[in-house]
């Protein structure tokens, strides 16, 4: 069995003793080599989770293990791009990459970093402060990829990018994952952005893990059904049900064969995610962590 990229156990964080929990009771296991989407509404705790994994925040309770060790020890092997893409504004683009090379001795991959920056048609002498949001994202990604991380944590990486740059950089990331086996974890509140590239899902809502597992498994475990109104959906676990006119539409986890007169379909990832987010009471499938583990 290989070492998981991230393993969280009852992880919790709150900022200040009387503050609300930003993240609580968070347990999941992400196998190495996956491209994982961390999805959830704004303020769900996605950034907190990524910062905890990057060793930038100390957890209030619980533990998180990264690449088989504690986040502080794993820090040199982990790449991180913060939501705000912080960079030193007074440095130039090439200078920023030189700093990355200097501060990550023995790990720096100048070719990859240069390639990411070159794709953006950036003047290497341009100051960071003169760059647009998307250009900054590119430099920040180059800095994170340049250290050749085994785990890459990206907080809202694509938010500032135009569709073309988004497509290109997503390609760079996928290439990195395929070539080096890099585990990539990226958060977004736009599900569609991640659907094609990710094979693993972590759905966070209200500071808790709502759903975790391989996307294919999760989709296969759920069914979208349409049945006559007043139909009893038991014994299947209902995530969301809505009656419109004489039809009842529902998203459920079948616990056995479904009656033949129901119209069924496979939900899209977005439908699945939205159903769970709209229904905070819906319970996550109990065996989900297990399927994750066996998938490893």
């Amino acid at each position: 069995m290989t070492v998981p990229a991230i393993e969280a156990d009852a992880l919790g964080k709150r900022f200040g003793r009387r503050a609300a929990w930003a993240l609580r009771d968070c347990s999941f296991r992400l196998p190495a080599g996956r491209v994982c989407a961390v999805v959830g509404p704004n303020g769900a705790g996605k950034s907190t989770l990524l910062a905890l994994a990057a060793g930038l925040l100390a957890p209030t309770e619980g533990t998180v293990t990264v690449l088989g060790t504690d986040p502080a020890t794993a820090r040199p092997r982990v790449g991180f791009v913060d939501q705000g893409k912080p960079l030193y504004p007074q440095l130039g683009v090439a200078e920023t990459l030189r700093m990355g090379a200097d501060l990550n001795p023995g790990r720096w991959d100048a070719d990859t970093a240069d390639r990411v920056v070159a794709g953006g048609d950036l003047d290497p002498r341009a100051r960071i402060r003169s760059l647009s949001g998307g250009q900054r994202t590119r430099v920040a990604l180059a800095l994170a990829l340049g250290k050749r991380p085994e785990l890459l944590l990206l907080d809202e990486p694509m938010a500032d990018l135009d569709p073309l740059a988004r497509h290109e950089l997503m390609g760079v990331l996928m290439g990195q994952a395929a070539e080096h086996g890099t585990t990539i974890v990226m958060s977004s509140h736009v599900v569609a952005e991640l659907e094609d590239s990710c094979d693993h899902l972590l759905l966070i809502g209200g500071g808790r893990v709502r759903l975790a597992g391989e996307i294919d498994d999760l989709l296969a475990a759920h069914t979208r059904v349409s049945a006559p109104a007043e139909t009893d959906l038991a014994p299947h676990a209902v995530v969301e049900a809505r009656t419109t006119g004489r039809r009842l539409s529902a998203l459920l986890r079948p616990s056995g064969p479904l009656p033949g007169d129901w119209r069924t379909g496979t939900p899209s990832l977005e439908e699945l995610v939205l159903s769970y987010l709209r229904n905070p009471g819906a319970l996550a499938p109990a065996p989900a962590p297990d399927t994750t583990e066996t998938a490893a």
Binding site: A54, L56, R75, G79, F80, D82, P86, M99, G100, K147
Partner: peptide, 10 residues
């Protein structure tokens, strides 16, 4: 946030 950048740069 550049402090966090430095902390993730080795």
């Amino acid at each position: 946030g550049t402090a966090r950048l430095a902390w993730t740069q080795g």
